[in-house]
Amino acid sequence: MSETNHTTIYEAIGGERTIRRIVEAFYPRVQAHPDLGPLFPEDIMPVMEKQFMFLTQFFGGPSLFSDMYGHPMMRGRHMPFPITPKRANAWLSCMGAALEEIGLDPTLRRVVLERLQGPAYHFVNTEDDTTE
């Protein structure tokens, strides 16, 4: 990504097609993860679509999420769920594995994961983790 041409992460990773591939590689990992899977509904498709819209917007693409649902307010939307540091780490680990699976360039993988670390840890709302 070059500062001089103001490329967004969305553009640098390949736009809509790549975001879709990330989401499709990510959620099977989340569902299978013992610390994350129980937080998600059995019908994961609506969650996947919201994640696609959010990541598109978050990485500098069209404002799909806001256009459909209003301001993301992601911390508030995650408050009903016990998000622990362990779960934030697991989420980031699943995302890293998904990015690797789809073959995203290692430099772009680092950029994406760095950008997602802030929100992942911002959503932490409890230290209590009875799954440890």
Rank of each mutant, 00 (worst) to 15 (best):
M1V: 10
S2V: 04
E3W: 13
T4Y: 15
T4H: 14
H6L: 15
H6T: 11
T8H: 04
T8I: 11
T8N: 05
I9N: 02
A12Y: 08
I13C: 07
I13Q: 02
I13H: 06
I13Y: 05
G14E: 07
G14K: 05
G15R: 07
G15V: 04
E16A: 13
I19F: 00
R20V: 07
R21M: 14
V23Y: 02
V23P: 04
V23S: 03
A25T: 01
F26N: 07
F26A: 01
F26M: 12
Y27C: 06
P28D: 07
R29T: 00
R29Y: 03
R29K: 14
D35Q: 13
D35W: 12
D35C: 03
L36T: 07
L36E: 10
L36K: 11
G37R: 08
G37T: 09
E42Y: 03
E42I: 01
D43L: 11
D43T: 09
P46G: 02
P46W: 04
P46R: 03
V47C: 03
K50N: 05
K50F: 00
K50S: 05
Q51G: 01
Q51D: 07
F52P: 00
M53Y: 01
M53C: 05
F54Q: 09
L55F: 08
T56A: 03
T56D: 06
T56G: 01
Q57T: 01
F58N: 04
F59V: 02
P62N: 07
L64H: 08
L64N: 09
F65V: 02
F65D: 01
S66Q: 12
D67F: 00
D67I: 00
Y69R: 15
H71F: 11
P72F: 13
P72W: 13
M73E: 15
P80S: 06
P80E: 12
F81I: 07
P82F: 02
P82H: 12
T84L: 02
P85W: 10
R87N: 06
A88Y: 13
L92E: 10
S93D: 14
M95D: 01
M95F: 08
A98S: 04
E100S: 14
E101Q: 14
G103D: 07
G103E: 10
P106V: 08
T107R: 15
R109P: 05
R110F: 00
V111K: 09
V112M: 13
L113Q: 10
E114V: 10
L116C: 14
Q117T: 09
G118C: 08
A120Q: 12
A120L: 12
H122G: 14
F123H: 12
F123V: 03
F123S: 06
N125A: 01
N125E: 05
D128I: 02
D129M: 00
T131A: 10
